[in-house]
Amino acid sequence: MGQVQKDTPKYQQAREKMVLSQIRLRGISDKKVLKAMSEVFRHCFVPEELASQAYADHPLPIGEGQTISQPYIVALMTESLKLKGPESVLEIGTGSGYQAAILANVTKEVYTVEIRKKLHTKANETLRSLGYTNIKTRHADGYFGWPEAAPFDCIMITAAIDHIPPPLLKQLKDGGRLILPLGNPFSYQNLSLVTKQGEDYTVKQITGVLFVPMTGYALDHN
């Protein structure tokens, strides 16, 4: 990881297939998101030995017990923020840097914070070598956000947490959106989208497509 691998026709093909079968067909329709997903070299963000699996429909281990999310989850999280282009987005948990790269292709500026030094260094190298200039990275505790750059239109938390940090809610603009995943990347995930409206917050659960059979069952029997 960190080494920029060339974009070969094999990877291009895999990316196109990923966008079509894993993302479009599951209902992601935001053109900017689809474009970003088809442009960002996901194989550069995974360990070299797993590069052949980079575009497969599952998360991948990136070392130190961390993962790069399943492509569909990345697309779903990005689309759920309903980004228009000029927004300022804060990402908590840089990880491999892939999600930040997708966000950077969709919006004006991305701030990303990673608490683990090694991951921060690797992701920073990868993003720099891929030429992303609108991503600012920081090795810090994401719980406190990035106060100097606040407020943000959107915040994305990519790490598992048991509560939403109050400092992050403070750094969210009125009407701003905060998204975070629920569940374990290896088993199942759904997303929670928090919207700030004055002093109040609503949390919308985005269950995606993974729960259709079960939730469908529950509703049918009601």
Binding site: T202, V203, Q205, T215, L219
Partner: peptide
């Protein structure tokens, strides 16, 4: 406040 597509747990 914490909105699911439907109130699955309640149902």
């Amino acid at each position: 406040f914490n909105i699911f597509d439907a109130p699955y747990h309640y149902i």
